Simulated assay, not measured.
Amino acid sequence: MAVELTEGATNRYDQAKAVERYFGQGDFIYETQDVPVPAEGQDYVDQFLFETQRGYCDNFSTSMIVLLRTLDIPARWAKGFTQGEMIETLDETRDIYEITNGNAHSWVEVYFPEVGWVPFEPTRGFDANIDFIEPEVEGEEANTEEDLEEESSEPEVEDVFAELQGDDEQLHLVPDK
């Protein structure tokens, strides 16, 4: 399935975007109540992709990661919170937001050599607020799987958003319209 979804995609970013877009098409439904639970011995991802196509962010993000990993694309699962609801403006530069359990969310991060972990949003009804353009590396060979394993075994992982915002020469961020 992953190979079919990414047919024609020539780089890691385009492959990840093709898989991400897949969840916004077809019969996938975002819902948080009465989400089908796999039967004993049934695979969580298979059930979501091929049977129910109903679920919440954990179903969408886990399924995208499995599809990416079948293509040997390093992907990880991230969980955190959405921005919440603005409840008060203090001044021109500061607002107060209320963040509750209802703002819990999971998403996908894909590893790009020379850049790091980049977020993707497969959950139908949610919108990632950045686009990523993979820089061309001149005169250097792409990292090997061995290099990637060394890098991913480092004990600290930098904040992906700080990394993305601070590197305008290698990375171009474009807000979604």
Rank of each mutant, 00 (worst) to 15 (best):
P74V: 07
P74D: 13
P74W: 03
P74K: 09
A75W: 02
A75R: 01
W77D: 02
W77T: 04
G80M: 08
G80N: 05
G80F: 02
G80C: 02
G80H: 04
F81A: 15
F81R: 13
T82D: 00
T82E: 01
Q83N: 10
Q83C: 06
E85C: 10
E85V: 05
E85Q: 12
I87V: 13
E88G: 00
T89E: 10
T89I: 15
L90G: 04
L90A: 08
L90D: 04
L90H: 08
L90S: 02
L90K: 09
D91M: 01
D91S: 11
E92F: 01
E92V: 02
E92G: 03
R94N: 11
R94K: 14
D95T: 14
D95Q: 15
D95Y: 06
Y97M: 01
E98D: 08
I99V: 15
T100Y: 06
T100S: 14
N101F: 03
N103P: 01
A104F: 08
S106I: 05
W107K: 12
W107T: 09
W107G: 10
V108K: 01
V108W: 00
E109G: 04
E109R: 09
V110H: 09
V110M: 10
V110D: 07
Y111C: 11
F112S: 11
F112I: 12
F112L: 12
F112W: 01
P113Y: 07
P113R: 07
P113A: 15
E114T: 10
G116E: 11
W117R: 15
W117A: 14
W117P: 08
P119T: 12
F120G: 06
E121W: 12
E121M: 13
P122Y: 04
P122Q: 10
T123Q: 08
R124E: 01
G125P: 02
G125Q: 08
G125S: 02
F126K: 13
D127C: 04
A128H: 10
A128F: 03
A128G: 14
A128Y: 09
